[in-house]
Simulated assay, not measured.
Amino acid sequence: MAQRPLADFALRLLRKPAHALDAEERRVLDSIDSGTIVSRDAGDEADARASLGDRLADRVAAIGGSWGFIITFTVVLLGWMLLNSDVLAHFDAAFDPYPYIFLNLMLSTLAAIQAPVIMMSQNRQASKDRLAASLDYETNLRAELDILRLHEKLDTLVLDRLAALEAKIDGLAIRAAPL
């Protein structure tokens, strides 16, 4: 887009000089000038920007934060304790007897790995939310500016029509005036 229309749009619609526009405002004015749409899906945008690590963190968080994982993990823990307390202890073959030191090590390791991965996923979700807010702002700004432009056009049409009516009335008044 040429610099002049952007500067005109910025002053007329946003009442800001072009150099004071932020990225969203500039994109909206560019889209108005080019006649393109500005709305985009935040989920698609975030997915396009996501790295393999981001997608993996989301998947781990989705699995680790599910009832299926909690129930399965509870069953595995109870099975481990039952196996090492009763079944294998009966044959003196328990590999992790009470107080389950190896189980504690495994749980600590799992927690040490899972917590940062879940935090990465939460950070990514916060980033998605910021992106969604930015895209919503662009869409709302575009809608507002389009409404303002429509008002300007309607105002111009109304003023032109009033001027034509006044001219017509003045013309009738001149013809009807006594000589």
Rank of each mutant, 00 (worst) to 15 (best):
E24W: 11
E24N: 14
L29H: 08
L29E: 11
S31C: 11
S31W: 02
I32K: 02
D33E: 13
D33R: 11
T36N: 11
T36M: 06
I37T: 10
R40V: 10
R40K: 08
A42E: 12
A48T: 15
R49S: 04
S51E: 08
R55C: 03
A57V: 00
D58P: 04
D58H: 04
V60P: 15
A61V: 03
A62L: 15
I63M: 05
G64S: 01
G65Q: 14
S66L: 03
S66D: 05
S66H: 03
G68N: 02
G68P: 00
I70R: 01
F73L: 00
F73S: 01
V75E: 04
V76H: 05
L78I: 10
L78R: 12
L78D: 12
G79Y: 02
W80Q: 02
M81L: 12
L82V: 06
L82Y: 08
L83A: 15
N84H: 06
V87D: 02
L88R: 07
A89F: 07
A89H: 09
F91A: 14
A93G: 06
A93V: 07
A94W: 07
F95H: 13
F95M: 09
D96T: 08
P99G: 11
P99F: 09
P99H: 09
Y100W: 13
I101Y: 11
F102A: 07
L103Y: 08
L105K: 04
M106D: 03
L107N: 14
S108G: 07
S108R: 01
S108Q: 01
A112H: 07
I113D: 08
Q114P: 07
Q114S: 01
A115T: 05
A115K: 00
V117W: 02
V117P: 05
M119L: 10
M120C: 13
M120R: 10
Q122M: 05
N123F: 15
Q125P: 03
A126I: 05
K128F: 00
D129A: 11
R130I: 01
R130A: 06
R130N: 05
R130V: 02
L131G: 02
L131W: 00
A133G: 12
L135A: 05
D136R: 13
R142W: 01
A143T: 07
E144I: 02
D146A: 12
I147Y: 14
I147V: 15
I147N: 14
